[in-house]
Amino acid sequence: MSKSYIKTGLFYIGIAAITILPLIVFLWMFLTGLKTQMDNLAIPPKIIFSPTLQNFKSVFAQNNFLKYLFNSFIVAVFAVAISLLFGLPAAYAIARFKMHKIGLTLLIARMIPFISYLIPWFIIFRKLRLVDTYIALITTHLIITLPFIIWIMVNFFENVPISLEEAARIDGCSYFQVFVRILIPVVRNGIFTSSVLGFIFSWNQFLFSLILSGNRTMTVPVAVFKFISYEEINWGGLAAAATTITLPPLILTLFIQKHMIKGLTSGAVKG
């Protein structure tokens, strides 16, 4: 009896020791953001200190940080919305009419390095004087979100029983009506999951935004990166900025936790 207690105890200690690893980095980031410059330069590092929100306040006060947050938000929302508009009907057609070759092409699109897209798009946008516009950013972010959303949604549409559609069609609904009134509500979980993941991908995107954004449209990952070069020593400010930009994806994760892993793998499982 006592032996199994010890075993269970050890198991939970093991679990705790492993689970602390992902958490401790976030904790360290957050605590560094709460420390004054003096505390951050202390050797050995201070575990007990009086926290201050000064770093967070100055991040929002300087550097147009709110504007960069807004830019990231706008680009992500439009990339996801356009992907849904074009992707949902396509995913339905691929699932219902078994157009698997098109599906495979989408997987290849995901393997192509982003830089392969970036070079041509940079040349084109430069010629059209569209560098540092939302159009340039949304177009390139679509390269990530559109194939991804189609892939997830093919899976969800395949799981809808065809009898559901046939019944509605007998009642006189057209394909389009069936799609909008019957299928979209049925796959709303999938739409939610893929939209959230698409939003996170766009929010976290760095390479496209680094080259194609400028002062007007800079997104937060680029802003934080530029911040590093000026503020090499200001750890508190950097950590506060890093905490702020990574918080939205972490919070969004909580809403889709049940489906997130399935969503991230659905593309590759079929290929």
Partner: peptide, 10 residues
């Protein structure tokens, strides 16, 4: 799930 979703730049 948190490390997977975290912004790589951060």
């Amino acid at each position: 799930l948190f490390p997977i979703a975290a912004t790589p730049v951060a």
